[in-house]
Design a protein around this nucleic acid. Sequence first.
DNA 1: TATGAATGAGCCTTCATTCAT
DNA 2: GATGAATGAAGGCTCATTCAT
Lengths: 193, 193, 193, 193
Amino acid sequence: MSKKENIVHAAIQMFREKGIDKTTVSDIVKTAGIAQGTFYLYFPSKLALMPAIAEEMVEKMMEIVKLSVKEEATFQKKLEQFVDAVFLVTRDYNEVQALIYAGLASTEHLKEWETVYAPFYEWISDLLQEAEEANVVRNTMHIDRTAKLLIGLVESAAEQVYLYDNTDEVEVNRQKQEVLSFLFHALGVKESI
Amino acid sequence: MSKKENIVHAAIQMFREKGIDKTTVSDIVKTAGIAQGTFYLYFPSKLALMPAIAEEMVEKMMEIVKLSVKEEATFQKKLEQFVDAVFLVTRDYNEVQALIYAGLASTEHLKEWETVYAPFYEWISDLLQEAEEANVVRNTMHIDRTAKLLIGLVESAAEQVYLYDNTDEVEVNRQKQEVLSFLFHALGVKESI
Amino acid sequence: MSKKENIVHAAIQMFREKGIDKTTVSDIVKTAGIAQGTFYLYFPSKLALMPAIAEEMVEKMMEIVKLSVKEEATFQKKLEQFVDAVFLVTRDYNEVQALIYAGLASTEHLKEWETVYAPFYEWISDLLQEAEEANVVRNTMHIDRTAKLLIGLVESAAEQVYLYDNTDEVEVNRQKQEVLSFLFHALGVKESI
Amino acid sequence: MSKKENIVHAAIQMFREKGIDKTTVSDIVKTAGIAQGTFYLYFPSKLALMPAIAEEMVEKMMEIVKLSVKEEATFQKKLEQFVDAVFLVTRDYNEVQALIYAGLASTEHLKEWETVYAPFYEWISDLLQEAEEANVVRNTMHIDRTAKLLIGLVESAAEQVYLYDNTDEVEVNRQKQEVLSFLFHALGVKESI
DNA sequence: TATGAATGAGCCTTCATTCAT
DNA sequence: GATGAATGAAGGCTCATTCAT
């Protein structure tokens, strides 16, 4: 593993353990097992970490999503698997996702966000596109815009359940079901498929 | 205005101007026109501000929502007005909303969140309840859960458009329309009503 | 003594002991008996100390000069007393004078230098003016320019002797004599007076 | 050009561009086109550069002085040419000369100073010696001491004009004239020659 | 209650120096 | 000799919090 990746992983780990604000460069280098100065060989400042972490997180998410969502499943099933994946990642990394929000947002790295998140949006767009072409969803939606709405919906649902609500399994499943039901209607999923 | 409110308003103002991380207690007291020490007469620490601000923000949002959504309008129209209101508040206060997200979340004030946001959820729940009773939406949804989904959806849509996308009026309106269309389908709004 | 003066004195002391570059803000506050943060209540940065120190040094020099140079002495005697005074201050504070040079010069405080050093130049200018009017020096010199030359000459002579040469009393006195002789000729001091 | 000279030249260049304090070893090696470690093959530390630079600077000054001062000129003319040369070098290298002052002085390299500056002193001493023998100056001065005073005077005059005063050509020339006049009297230059 | 000067722990960052290749 | 990635001590500065008035 390259030293740069090493730093990113250490940072993610510390962010999950101590929160973003409380994590210092000193924490990160200690975890990464490198010297303080070495950090600055790879990142010009602490803030410059954020895009790299965001990228890493999106990659991880894409990985899990691709692993969860089976190629051969029906669209309905795929949606279900997708929701499962997002809930999973949110449960394990919601602290870090808040970072992607807050960290990226509070700096001047806003433009990078779009780039970083792009593959995720695209993946959903493709999914919706296929579904529309297969005539299993309503054909009145704007694909790209709807993709974003879909992601926003599922992520916020997952955040609500893991950050603020009790996280007992039963409740989580009910929330997932409600999201799916909400989604099916929103997309006009054809029941008979 | 009580001195406590004074502090809260000053904090919100500074957060909007300088961002949350960059705002210091010193900034806040200067804006509030009080002494450094006085702050600690009303709040035990800087973090203790967050719930108070969240409360204020939710109040402001409720106010705007109540002002925007006309009692006599149809459910469809009400939804539209609601979306307008959320977009409006997000545009003007997205920095501060990020605080409610990140600030509350990163501290130990998580439990307070529920309480603070409660009136907002309730208001939407009531709206949905009425709609269901009037038989203008599908009757298969869990009201409270759907209320949260609805809020999450609209807020994330507004954030996407104001934080990351270009904010030209035309684009914003398209996004609003897509949200509404998405929502109408999700809630199973009866077209004929 | 005000806390600001306290800091300035502590800084001068440390500069004399450790040299300028080696002196840290931490050293200064320790000597001044105050907290690290207190320093920044009175000076926005470490560099901002320099003009204040320069001022203090010039004041000290003026004080010693005024004490040394007797009102009723002849011009020749006054010159001699002046050279003594400059040598004295240089011996005790040459490290700090280097600071005034280097410190002021290396920052953007150059303009302040003129202001700070002004009373010193003026004092010499007045002395020369009187001498010219009393017809005890040549009347072909430009008073202000010559004042600066005179100060530059005496200071550099003192620096040479205390910084680089051996500082035994005999050698120092010879150097003083040579300076005076040089000066008397340069100013065209009338011997018979 | 040897690698050592290369480093010295790079250092001088960077000192002139960025100032002494702000110049890092990293800057120097980048300019010299060598690796960070290579620096330490030729100089045991950053401070060890200073005498080498001083030497280089004095050499440069001697070169310019020798070029400016014509063998066949009268003593008066030679003095004038000498002042011109010192003003020239000061204008172009005053930053670096401050280094020779401050840098050498503040370190433990004081003793080297004498050695380094020696040829310069000697050259002036020789000039004065000749003048005395030719009976064109007063014969009451101590040659070596006066040589130092002369250099101190001219250098401080040049520094004053280039560092603190306005540097317009007219003013500079007036200062030069005043220095020369001061000098002629100080040395007791015989007018009729 | 109200003040605001004082505190000091701790942060980010720099950079001279080293050393394995 | 030459390299340049790695080191880590140390510095300047910030700012939430305290406390004597």
